[in-house]
Simulated scan of single mutants.
Amino acid sequence: MSDLEIRAARPDELADVEGLLIGASTWLADRGIDQWQYPPHRDRITAALRRGEVFLALRDQRPIATIQVDEFADPEFWRASDQPDSAFYVHRMAVSRQAAGEEIGAILLEWAADRAAAAGKAYLRLDAWKDNSGLHRYYQATGFDLLRIVDLPHRRSGALFQRAVRPGAAPRTGAE
């Protein structure tokens, strides 16, 4: 998408990131899906912003999506046998309703996969809400395989997905 720019979010853009996450939460609630029905973890997002792990997709210099990509493999989900260091992990991806249906999420996931490959990783991974079958189908349609579902009583997430990345791929800015 030629008019889409993907770049690291700055710490002073916390409100933009939170706004995108709250918008996604509201949209999910309106559809009876209980995913993300809590305020965004401001402390975690702020720390990730400072580490350069939160990204914004912008159109006409306005944020339309966010994604966090890092090396954090949640130890409650990812086993030593998964070789956690072999992947980058996606967290907190949200697309504004104004950009819904434009495949922005798929573009962000492809961008994140290229970023993982450029860092020498073999996989892009994520955990999703266990009972959101629509989200599971979405991730499978974008090239992810469902590895397993980890059912922890204190966690609603736990559907573990991964996709292999192309070795040596260079991350794109989205502006090509």
Rank of each mutant, 00 (worst) to 15 (best):
L21K: 00
I22A: 00
A24H: 04
A24E: 05
S25E: 01
T26G: 09
T26Y: 12
T26N: 15
W27R: 04
W27E: 04
W27S: 03
W27G: 03
L28H: 08
A29T: 10
A29M: 09
A29I: 11
A29P: 10
D30V: 08
D30W: 09
R31A: 14
R31I: 12
R31Y: 10
G32W: 08
I33V: 02
I33E: 00
D34N: 03
D34A: 02
Q35R: 02
Q35E: 04
Q35W: 02
Y38K: 14
P39R: 10
P40T: 08
P40Q: 07
H41F: 14
R42V: 13
D43R: 08
D43P: 02
R44I: 15
I45G: 11
T46L: 07
T46C: 07
T46A: 14
A48E: 14
A48M: 11
L49Y: 07
L49K: 06
R50I: 06
R50M: 07
R51A: 13
R51L: 09
G52D: 13
G52Q: 11
V54E: 06
V54S: 07
V54W: 09
V54K: 08
F55M: 02
F55N: 02
A57L: 00
L58F: 03
Q61L: 13
Q61T: 10
R62A: 13
R62V: 10
R62P: 04
I64W: 03
I64T: 04
I64R: 04
A65Q: 05
T66H: 05
T66A: 09
I67S: 06
I67M: 14
I67E: 06
Q68I: 13
Q68F: 10
V69C: 07
V69P: 05
E71P: 05
F72W: 15
F72Q: 12
A73P: 13
D74P: 11
D74R: 13
P75N: 11
P75Q: 12
P75C: 13
E76Y: 14
